[in-house]
Design a protein around this nucleic acid. Structure first.
Lengths: 344, 344
DNA sequence: CACGTTTTCGGGAACGTTTGCACACTTTTT
DNA sequence: AAAAAGTGTGCAAACGTTCCCGAAAACGTG
């Protein structure tokens, strides 16, 4: 803000004290007498003094801000994560700067470096579906920037991570389809680069195995761009439908909604015949037709936990060397009984 | 970032120049010889020099950041607006700090003041549904903080504003219901505090008038919290249904989805019998059941335009005195033919 | 050659904080 | 009574920039 605002100097002058005394009084340091503290506090209150965070940052060499990278904020899951992040961050006196990678590696790298040059104190990141090379992150991390990964995490990076129990979420969803009598279950998923893709695939396979259903690789379709392009989704659906699946397990938020949309567009009839189970944090699933069984991730909590870990790293006196990977349970929300047809 | 990074001083020392010369060379000022400039630039490039934005901000008394206040980011409309804002802001070298009011006046005020103390250069805000008193904004504005309102704007505040053509959007939606043969058209809307509420009500009334349908005040239900609480919505729906409307026009994104949800919950049968038209920017409307006619706002564009106006204010040499209110057209997306029932 | 101009550069203050150190004064200890 | 310890405060440097001002060098011009 370029407009006039009272500074510590003004207070010092007005009260006939030195800036150091005022500063210390404001920070409630032990060296200052109660009397002076009260005086300063009262006056500061009166003139509505607000410490200039920029000057503070320059002096303390930190900005009290943390960067967030997600693929997009217009996404139920991520916007809920962000809410969790904000809840903790604001509480602890940090503000957050959000950037979107739009599932592009280039954009992600650009944004991270922009944030780093903006003097963030720490970074919270879910990798883009394109990302394979995370050396630029390793570099920043090596220079001292605390980083916590969430949701989409790299395997070979020693730091805190927060993820959902993707294996179990996928297992539950697939098992649910099997228990509903489905046998030919397709799997639509994200880029192979992503940890979530691999973990969810394993869950899917494990469920099939448990019920002695053979794993058919051609029933698995990968979307390199995470469903950002509708053409990609339509292509996948077109390839999948001829295999006549009676169920489909979809592995991410955007993919789930995008896939249903693509199925309706490609072949509206079949969309209602295939049982759908998918990861999504949409709070509108009850409105969807066809309806589906959804795997909900504890997004808000994930944001909270990740932020707490990050702040603990930022505020640690000495370098952290013990890292943990928190795994949060997902929730299976079973499809509503379709009581719809009599009303159409 | 607290980790070591090269400064202008380091460059100066290494090159045997003064900091002023280096600074000027970096900023490409005319006083510096081409030769020296090249030397400095080359060295800066070599050591990967990045100007410290915090020091810069302190010196220049501005932060190159703009604040955004929306009611929530987990909202199709707002997240799209934010995308538009970011597109322009990043392009012009600003970064954005997003805050959510959650439709609470208290939270809104708190966030705005937090942002202001964080030295934002300007503010982009859509008022919360609770907000009536905007004196605190007037105060900040008076002190020199540029503010641009979008979507939910106050009437008595002289500054740039960007809104959708709410009157026409509401008119079109209502007319569409009328032309579909509906005669008892309810209207579910936001808090009366909001500009969008008033404008959309007028559009609704105008459409009724055009077709000689009497306006029935009891068919209009207001939601003070903009549908943040589901109880509020269910209450409204419970009051509305006994009046036997055959159509309903809903006035905002969250309200539209929330209302359908509430109708399905309260009386699933009737949900499919009432024709629905509502404002929403959800990209999933095609998935909804019951399906609906939607009024889409040019959210992305709204963000872009608002940001351009704000930046023009921020960068204006002298105080801006000519303000404009940009009105952007909405788009009516007609309900899909329900080809659904034969597939259920 | 003496003078003004232009070009190119450096010194140093300033932005608003925080903090190590020194200093003065009071109280306690030996 | 002198020394030590404790208490409260101020001075000044520092964080990394930008920019005003002055000065040295190079260049005409008469």
């Amino acid at each position: 803000m370029r407009f006039e605002t009272s500074t510590i100097k003004d207070i010092a002058k007005a009260l006939g004290l030195s800036t150091s005394t005022v500063s210390r009084a404001l920070r409630d340091r032990y060296e200052i007498s109660e009397e002076t503290k009260k005086l300063v506090l009262a006056y500061a209150e009166k003139v509505n003094y607000r410490a200039n965070p920029i000057a503070r940052s320059l002096k303390e060499r930190r900005s009290y801000s943390i960067g967030i990278i997600v693929s997009e904020i217009a996404n139920n899951f991520f916007s809920q994560v962000i809410n969790g992040i904000e809840a903790i961050a604001y509480d602890r006196g940090y503000h957050v700067i959000i950037s979107q990678s739009h599932e592009s590696y280039k954009q992600e790298k650009l944004n991270v470096e922009h944030l780093a040059s903006r003097s963030i104190d720490g970074l919270l990141i879910a990798l883009s579906s394109e990302t394979q090379d995370i050396d630029y992150l390793r570099n920043l991390y090596g220079k001292g920037l605390p980083i916590v990964f969430f949701d989409r995490v790299p395997e070979d990076f020693e730091t805190h991570k927060v993820i959902a129990n993707n294996f179990k979420g996928a297992f539950d969803a697939t098992e649910h389809l099997i228990l509903s009598g489905k046998r030919t279950i397709a799997h639509l998923t994200n880029s192979e680069n992503l940890s979530i893709t691999r973990e969810r695939l394993k869950g899917y396979q494990a469920a099939l195995a448990k019920y002695n259903i053979g794993f058919e690789p051609e029933l698995v379709k990968y979307c390199q761009h995470g469903g950002m392009h509708s053409a990609e989704l339509e292509q996948a659906v077109k390839e999948l439908l001829p295999l006549n699946p009676d169920g489909i397990f979809i592995s991410s938020d955007r993919l789930t909604t995008g896939c249903i949309m693509a199925m309706k567009k490609t072949n509206p009839g079949v969309a209602h015949k295939i049982a759908i189970a998918g990861f999504t944090n949409s709070n509108l699933v009850e409105l969807f037709s066809p309806s589906l069984t959804s795997v909900k991730q504890p997004a808000f909590e994930m944001g909270q936990v990740a932020t707490e870990l990050l702040i603990s790293m930022i505020e640690a006196k000495r370098p952290v060397t013990e890292f943990e990977t928190k795994v949060l349970d997902t929730e299976l929300v079973r499809m509503q009984k379709p009581l719809g047809n009599r009303f159409l």
